[in-house]
């Protein structure tokens, strides 16, 4: 069916109305708060940049931003480093479509269950007498239980697990579309597995890696449940700062922290998208 102007507008009207009222306006109201000031337990009506000034002159803000960035980098790197071999193994070792679909479904399945449930699973696994510590001690790798909860380690492990499917699937889908005859050609020409992998497979699957990293990084930056439940107050990241300010009725402070989080997210998306465009397409 060909659509004409008024029809197009009518079709889009419900979605656009919802977006205008429930998205643009609330975000606008939110950011307007950043131009007010929170003092003596209340929000002053006067317009000011004071909240920005205070936020960006406070060393604590930079510590929070630093923690957020460090956590996101580490978790993204781990998710890609673990996700790539898993995707590669699935692509190269499993050939029956039904088996592939079944394994893909298993890898995808945690996403069907609430992030609170998954975080709870890690709470049990990482406890001082939990499975991880018991196993490590059983193997003789450690003598005393290592503390994996309520610090950065637990948050990194749990968040890596939560984001892993988002790294595996873009990489796997690029491998799936990869022209395998290119690999065969490289091997026919006498290149070994290492050369083939380094000079053919890896460069061709780079778009999948970048796409996966993009999703992981933005999701890690805005992660809230995991740092809150497993960080034990020691992993102060931006979403927690926004949450805490809002709980303390300091909407202006929360708005500035949230805006910072938003700008970093958008910058990351933009940078990785720019990288994606420079890569050869499959």
């Amino acid at each position: 069916m060909k659509l004409r102007g008024p029809v197009i507008l009518a079709l889009m009207a419900p979605a656009l109305a919802l977006m205008a009222v429930l998205y643009v306006v609330p975000l606008g109201v939110y950011f307007i708060n950043s131009f007010h000031e929170f003092r003596d337990g209340r929000i002053l009506p006067a317009w000011t940049l004071q909240t920005y000034v205070r936020y960006f002159t406070d060393p604590f803000s930079y510590r929070v931003i630093g923690t957020s960035l460090r956590l996101s980098f580490v978790v993204t790197a781990l998710a890609v480093l673990i996700g790539y071999p898993v995707a590669y193994a699935l692509h190269t070792r499993v050939h029956r479509p039904a088996a592939r679909a079944a394994i893909a479904l298993l890898l995808f399945s945690p996403l069907l269950v609430s992030v609170v449930v998954r975080t709870y699973g890690w709470l049990i696994l990482l406890a001082s007498q939990g499975l991880v510590n018991t196993t490590l001690r059983g193997l003789g790798l450690i003598q005393e239980p290592i503390s994996l909860l309520f610090n950065m380690r637990g948050v990194v492990i749990s968040l890596t697990h939560i984001l892993l499917p988002f790294a595996i699937f873009p990489i796997y889908s690029v491998m799936d579309r990869l022209d395998l005859s290119l690999k065969e050609a490289a091997r026919d020409l006498g290149a070994g597995w290492r050369e083939t992998f380094l000079h053919v497979t890896l460069p061709l699957t780079m778009p999948g890696i970048v796409a996966g990293a993009l999703i992981c990084f933005t999701l890690a930056l805005s992660a809230f449940v995991t740092p809150q439940l497993l960080g034990g107050g020691r992993v102060q990241v931006l979403p927690l700062a926004v949450y805490n300010s809002t709980v303390e009725i300091n909407w202006p402070g929360g708005a500035v922290a949230g805006l910072t989080l938003l700008v970093i997210s958008i910058a990351a998306v933009w940078a990785l998208n720019a990288l994606l465009r420079r890569l050869p397409t499959v």
Partner: peptide, 24 residues
């Protein structure tokens, strides 16, 4: 060797993904 290693990686990956759900 590669074949074995990749199969092991796949098993470990699936285990890691399912572990928190199984333990729950």
């Amino acid at each position: 060797l590669r074949d074995g290693a990749l199969r092991a990686i796949l098993v470990l990956g699936v285990t890691f993904i399912l572990l928190p759900l199984a333990i729950v």
